[in-house]
Amino acid sequence: MIVVMEQNATEDQVKSIASRIEAMGLKATVIVGTERTVIAAIGEKRGTFKDSIESCPGVSEVTPISAPYKMASREVRPEPSLIRVRDFAAGAGQVGYVAGPCSVESEEQLMSSARAVKAAGATGLRGGAFKPRTSPYSFQGMKEDGLKLLSAARDETGLAVFTEVMATEDVDLVARYADVLQVGARNMQNYRLLEAVGKSGKPVLLKRGASATMDEFLLAAEYILNEGNDQVMLCERGIRTFESHTRFTLPLASVPYLHRRTHLPVIIDPSHGTGHTYMVHDLAVAAVAAGADGLIIEVHPDPSNAMSDGYQSQTFEAFAETMKRCRKVQAALAEE
């Protein structure tokens, strides 16, 4: 249920309603918007809830939340959320650009990448320290040594660090070094991991599973939100279809659909979404034109010799050109 407070409701009235909801065995989340304050009452309470709350001072109305995902729904928060980490910002009209190598391989590789993407205009640095690989014999990442290199790159460039966490037991370790915890497509429905990153208090980039429906995607985000962490970004990185001309099929229709359903920022990954370097530029530009709140792009100093995903990684020069084009589209949209 959503408790909509009157515009002139006092802070004490809001606190009183929240306490009353909690006393009923429900979870109360107060959301202060520019035009109204609402309190989301989450739980299984039935019966007289509406009547007993709607008659309280300061309450305008009580309405049910129809979406299966509650905290992620536009019904609870009609205004778009803004996620800000250091100089990175995504949502509510802001577009954030994250770039860097698929895997952290060495100090030279990471530092040169960080400097290059920073110079091109990125505000976030991606890099995998723990790598989920299909084969157990493939490079699995540098683990904590990789995290230390990411931290050093942040110290020099100021870029916000985005890196993947794969297991609940690694959340505290990764959170010590990273600014944003990434949950990969393979772990989108690892509910214990979602709860753990929710409890971390760190911003989270949640990637859509390769076969996940939109409702499943948003309900996965709900696990994080339900832990009191409202700093969640949704990442569309492509889904598995019958097509073979791309690694995955990147549905840019996800951007307007998710914007209609949720207040959470939507980030597009054109690297995994295509699997081919030559496609990344055009899909990145198209994503910005479609209204995406951000991009996450794989960039490597020597893609042909990358230890993972070199075939979909841009060179420094290609990324700089992509950024120029994306910024032009972003500026044109801002003039409308």
Rank of each mutant, 00 (worst) to 15 (best):
C235G: 02
V117N: 10
L125W: 09
G96F: 04
H281T: 12
A28K: 05
E222F: 06
F248G: 00
C235H: 04
D293T: 08
T37C: 11
T157P: 08
Q312Y: 03
E236T: 02
D282M: 00
G275L: 09
E107C: 06
V95A: 09
C235V: 08
M214W: 05
L333H: 12
G58D: 07
A119Q: 13
V197M: 08
Y223T: 00
G294N: 02
E216V: 02
V59A: 13
R86V: 00
V299E: 08
M111E: 08
V174N: 04
V329Y: 03
G91C: 09
D170V: 02
G100Q: 10
I42P: 00
E335A: 15
T262F: 09
V76I: 13
I17P: 06
V232Y: 05
E169C: 08
L147S: 07
P301S: 13
I17W: 04
G238M: 01
R208D: 03
I239F: 03
A334L: 11
A167P: 00
A318D: 12
P256C: 04
D179V: 10
R46V: 12
Y137F: 12
E79W: 10
I268A: 00
P303T: 12
T274L: 02
A167M: 11
K27R: 14
G198H: 01
D12C: 00
R77E: 14
E216I: 04
T34E: 15
D179Q: 04
S135C: 10
I53S: 07
F49W: 11
L150T: 09
E336D: 12
P301I: 13
L125A: 02
M323R: 14
S103D: 01
I42E: 15
K324M: 13
D215M: 13
T63S: 12
A160K: 01
L218I: 08
L333T: 01
R208W: 09
Q312L: 07
I224C: 10
A120I: 11
A9Q: 09
T315S: 15
R325T: 15
L225P: 10
G93E: 11
R176I: 01
Y191Q: 06
S52D: 15
E35S: 14
I21P: 05
G141W: 09
M5P: 03
H263R: 06
G124T: 10
S60C: 06
N305V: 13
V255Y: 01
M323I: 15
V85E: 08
P203C: 07
G91P: 14
R77K: 14
V161T: 11
Q13W: 07
L234I: 05
P203I: 11
A18G: 10
V85T: 11
R86G: 04
A178P: 12
K70I: 15
V30Y: 04
S200Q: 08
L193W: 09
G273N: 06
G146E: 04
S135E: 10
Q13K: 09
E44R: 10
T213G: 15
L218D: 06
L252A: 02
R84D: 04
F319V: 11
Q330L: 15
M5F: 04
I268L: 05
C326Q: 01
G201I: 12
G124E: 08
A221H: 02
S138D: 15
G93M: 06
A67N: 10
